[in-house]
Computed example of a mutant assay.
Amino acid sequence: MTEEATTVRSIFFDSPADAVSALATAVRSGAAGDGVVDALGRMPDAGKKAVLSEVGSAAAGILELGMQDIFGQAWGKYTALRQAAVATAADPGSEQIVELASHTLSFDHQPGVDVHIGDLPPLPITLHIQLTILVQGLVAVVRGGRLLLVRTGSCEATGTLTIAGRQVAERQLAVEFPLSLSFRDGIPLAEPSDR
């Protein structure tokens, strides 16, 4: 799988339809689903199923977060990149090349979906995304406190996905990068005031 096609959803599911189906099923069969079904009261079963499917679709949409976003958040915590960013922010026009031979990124995210039914209080349904990404053979270019470019490498992502406290997916996946991955405006890792 290439980075350009890689989203959180594509790490766990082969297609958007698979994601919607799995998440809708998890919501239907868990405590969150019971809460939604109870709130729907006497609505016909077909209506209840439609609402739960919409919850699954909304949850699947949250999973479209791209790998650049994940790396941007994770690399901001990586010491060697942060040091290069602080140095280049303090010396405008300078550039540092940081070799990231092998390191591990962790990503932990808990977005949620609120289900609104009539005048009832919203019912929150939480997703929990945990990823561990082993990155090998990357070279990063840092200028002006920003990560601008990452040159060729590979990574392996391992993750678990839960919704409303129920594990929906667990997967390991190799991600192949293009020869270089550039970040349009750069990922800010430091400002001149960070000296």
Results as ranks from 00 to 15, higher is better:
47 G>P: 00
191 E>V: 06
13 F>R: 03
181 L>K: 14
103 H>T: 11
112 G>N: 13
119 D>L: 10
164 A>L: 03
59 A>M: 12
137 G>P: 04
141 V>N: 04
144 G>W: 06
53 S>G: 14
20 V>N: 05
58 A>E: 13
150 V>H: 01
191 E>Q: 14
109 H>G: 01
177 F>M: 15
135 V>S: 08
120 L>H: 08
89 A>Y: 08
34 D>G: 14
29 S>K: 09
122 P>H: 12
157 A>C: 13
160 T>N: 08
5 A>Q: 14
148 L>I: 10
128 H>F: 11
195 R>F: 10
149 L>A: 05
43 M>T: 10
176 E>F: 06
118 G>I: 09
146 R>N: 10
119 D>C: 05
71 F>I: 14
26 A>R: 07
45 D>T: 09
173 L>N: 08
116 H>Q: 12
59 A>P: 00
178 P>T: 12
187 I>P: 02
29 S>G: 10
161 L>E: 03
31 A>Y: 04
51 V>T: 14
184 R>S: 09
184 R>M: 02
66 G>R: 15
154 S>A: 11
90 A>H: 03
134 L>C: 01
115 V>E: 00
153 G>I: 06
28 R>T: 08
79 T>H: 14
20 V>D: 12
8 V>I: 15
120 L>T: 07
187 I>R: 09
26 A>W: 06
93 G>Q: 10
156 E>P: 01
160 T>K: 10
28 R>L: 06
34 D>N: 13
24 A>P: 05
87 A>S: 12
88 T>D: 03
76 G>W: 04
16 P>Y: 03
157 A>P: 04
10 S>N: 11
180 S>R: 13
16 P>C: 06
178 P>V: 09
5 A>I: 09
149 L>K: 15
115 V>P: 02
55 V>W: 06
85 A>E: 05
41 G>M: 04
43 M>V: 07
121 P>D: 10
37 V>Q: 08
56 G>P: 02
74 A>S: 15
9 R>V: 00
7 T>W: 01
89 A>C: 11
135 V>R: 05
34 D>K: 09
133 I>F: 02
102 S>I: 00
175 V>K: 07
3 E>H: 11
179 L>N: 11
98 V>P: 02
180 S>L: 10
179 L>R: 13
47 G>L: 03
97 I>R: 14
73 Q>F: 06
122 P>K: 08
74 A>G: 05
168 V>H: 00
127 L>P: 01
2 T>D: 12
102 S>T: 09
179 L>T: 13
109 H>I: 11
38 D>T: 14
72 G>N: 07
45 D>I: 07
10 S>C: 07
71 F>V: 11
12 F>E: 01
23 L>Y: 05
21 S>M: 08
186 G>F: 01
124 P>C: 03
192 P>M: 06
187 I>F: 03
22 A>T: 08
63 L>F: 00
93 G>I: 08
166 R>W: 00
140 A>N: 00
12 F>T: 04
16 P>K: 08
93 G>S: 08
188 P>F: 04
100 L>W: 05
175 V>R: 07
154 S>R: 12
165 G>T: 01
52 L>H: 05
20 V>F: 06
126 T>P: 02
28 R>C: 04
54 E>K: 15
139 V>A: 11
